[in-house]
Design a protein around this nucleic acid. Sequence first.
DNA 1: ATATATTTCAGAATTATATTCAATTCTTAT
DNA 2: ATAAGAATTGAATATAATTCTGAAATATAT
Lengths: 159, 159
Amino acid sequence: MISGNEIILDKTDLSILRLMQENARISNADLARELEMAPSAVLERVKKLEQKNVILQYTTRLNPSAVNQKLLAFISMKASDVMGSSDTAKQLAKIPEVQEVHHIAGEDCYLVKVRTADSASLMDLMRNSFSKIPNILSTRTTIVLETVKEAQQLVIPEK
Amino acid sequence: MISGNEIILDKTDLSILRLMQENARISNADLARELEMAPSAVLERVKKLEQKNVILQYTTRLNPSAVNQKLLAFISMKASDVMGSSDTAKQLAKIPEVQEVHHIAGEDCYLVKVRTADSASLMDLMRNSFSKIPNILSTRTTIVLETVKEAQQLVIPEK
DNA sequence: ATATATTTCAGAATTATATTCAATTCTTAT
DNA sequence: ATAAGAATTGAATATAATTCTGAAATATAT
């Protein structure tokens, strides 16, 4: 095998993924019933999908309000990164409140999705975390008033 | 209780949520071991968290490339919605390729996160789905070159 | 075409887990 | 203090996960 990493998924794999994306806690037995296969066969496929890095994570979507993460914002920023190096992005990614970091087309630009308790917490974050990252030339914050559709990953407070 | 829907989560609940957000397929037995509690007690809490809508969904994060969703873009749009009604957002939310729909501050503005196979698919989507939604006055597409951090929900092809 | 290797699958056996429930302990308000 | 309600435990049993083996199907090499 010279080529390398082309991942081929058949109909059965895709069905498994569809069911597990919908409900990650579906039992292997139920999966097998849906697919009309033996549980052992299904289990083997799931393990391969994990190994092949098709399945990245089983996660739980939480109600943001319930864990006191009521403010959602997108911050776009201009940075003076040298081509190829993206230390800025990596440092942004380390901040727990930062849910997503995307390097976007156009300029030296990053788009960051942030979730905090309120606007005061967001300002704290910008003062204490963002301001310590070098290369950031400017930021522009967009507050989300209402989210109609979403999948998320939240920062759960210690206590 | 006159107030109504204040959800109170204790330390144990938060630990459960933290563990389950990290790995939705953790067994109840393992959860109990981690928390040094009886499995039955943990199970009861998890069920309550589901009932109280703290837990929204157990989901599986997939490798976008593996399911042929290689292009990620953010589309910001101006719409002529009447205050309060947000049919536009609801219609956007119905499109499977649309992962997120946020109503953002500033003007009558929506921010939409879209994932497709490639730029041709994105253009198809804009021609065939977006253009059929009334009230949209203008759109601006931002292509993501690289994602450094993310949680997602993907459209899995039928076959 | 044929042999060989690889992959996929089903079914049985074993081990582990989920689930239920009655009894008990812990909380909280009075 | 104490009653009422909530949460937890532990044991029993119902379900499920996991492992293994061999058969079948598929792919690859000769």
